Simulated assay, not measured.
Amino acid sequence: MVETQIASKAAPVRFENVTKKFGRDVIAVDNIDLHVEAGKLVTLLGPSGCGKTTTLRMIAGLEMATSGRILIGAEDVTNLPATDRDVSMVFQSYALFPHMTVLENVSYGLKFSGFNKSETRDRAIAGLDLVGLKGFGERLPSELSGGQQQRVAVARALVLEPQVLLFDEPLSNLDAKLRRQVREDIRAIQQDLGLTVVYVTHDQEEALAVSDEIVVMRNASIAQIGTPRELYDAPVDQFVADFIGEANILPCTIEHVENDLARINVDGYRYELPARGLSSGAAKLAVRPSRLVIGEKDGFQARISKATYVGVRMEYTLEAAFGSMFAVQDDVDAPLEVGSDVTVGFSTKGPVLLPEA
């Protein structure tokens, strides 16, 4: 029986005014400050080219910062090569050796870490057990499913007991059902071991599901940092509102503000909500599809232009005087008819005010 345990040496990660340039003109990361607490899973989220992967690679030592400081724990690692940093990385492609068994793949990094043959084997077996692959050690990677291969890659990283574990788009090669299962596995392992994890993805749902905190990146800089619920319920601007989940961005007018409570007008429909520091005048309103209420007595007028049944809910496209909206309803037994005129309001915890620009 293997008694070896995988231990956590979780350390915080800090970026202080970090910039990364490629050549003279290409700024991949622009003067960012970031603090990842020890034992937390923080996701870097954003569209292609926003700087999230470059940020991850700078933690790993695969890219060097042009300016600023990077600390892991109390150590300044800014100029340290990857081999001198106590981090492990799980790649999108798994990067398994096809000619080696699963156990040999997991053991590979341990051979260079000062463990004897017996300790190496025990740790590798413990790592496979941890990711639910006990008894799979003698198989080749080609004999495993995509999800199982990804777990092998996670086990290989975990057995090194890194201060920081890095994930670069780890689920992008898996189908939807496997993605959900493997992300739950990764989150469970991270929480059980108290690992510091920095995780890169472009998938908003994935980020919301696994993260303690999400760093939304845009144009080489940080747009907003917050918990999944904070970002979903209180985005700072239109980009974050539109990128984190689905949001309808509606034009509105702030008619009056008192004690940080704003009275707004949306096509004649008046509603009160937190002003979030805004003053009277034109503004934008972010409303999640589930927080548009069709059939309210008080609201603005719209027409149903499309109705789609997707099993657990109905999805509707609505046309109002100011443009189109997307709404969802749980009532699948009495769907609303295309072409019908409806009144649309907001749920109690509904819209969020955003700056006009």
Rank of each mutant, 00 (worst) to 15 (best):
A220K: 01
G281P: 09
T4I: 09
V332Y: 09
N219K: 15
A126G: 06
A157R: 02
V344E: 02
M89N: 01
F346L: 07
A327P: 00
T101S: 15
S340H: 02
K20V: 15
Y232W: 12
D25Y: 09
V342G: 07
I189D: 06
A126H: 08
G46Q: 02
T348L: 13
L292Y: 00
V352H: 13
T19R: 10
L133K: 09
N265R: 04
G311N: 00
G323E: 00
A28R: 09
C50Y: 07
P228V: 03
V210C: 10
P335Y: 01
A188T: 15
V198H: 00
T19L: 09
L110N: 12
N265T: 00
G109Y: 06
P274V: 10
I59Q: 09
P47S: 10
L353I: 11
A60K: 08
L261N: 12
T196M: 03
D212H: 15
R263S: 10
V338G: 01
F15Q: 07
A65F: 08
A11F: 01
S145Q: 02
G132H: 09
G311D: 01
N105E: 11
G281T: 12
E184M: 14
S279N: 13
T19F: 09
A307I: 02
V102N: 10
D260P: 10
S280Y: 08
R218W: 01
E143Y: 06
A126Y: 05
A60N: 11
K306D: 11
N105W: 13
E119T: 08
R187L: 05
T66E: 04
L96Y: 07
V236E: 11
S347P: 07
L44S: 03
V29I: 03
K349N: 12
V106N: 11
V236L: 11
Q149N: 08
S113I: 11
A207N: 03
G295T: 05
D212N: 14
N31T: 11
A95G: 02
F322G: 01
A7Y: 04
Y269N: 10
F167W: 02
D175H: 06
D33I: 01
L144K: 10
D333H: 12
A82M: 13
A286D: 07
D84G: 12
A282T: 14
P170C: 08
G39N: 02
Y199Q: 04
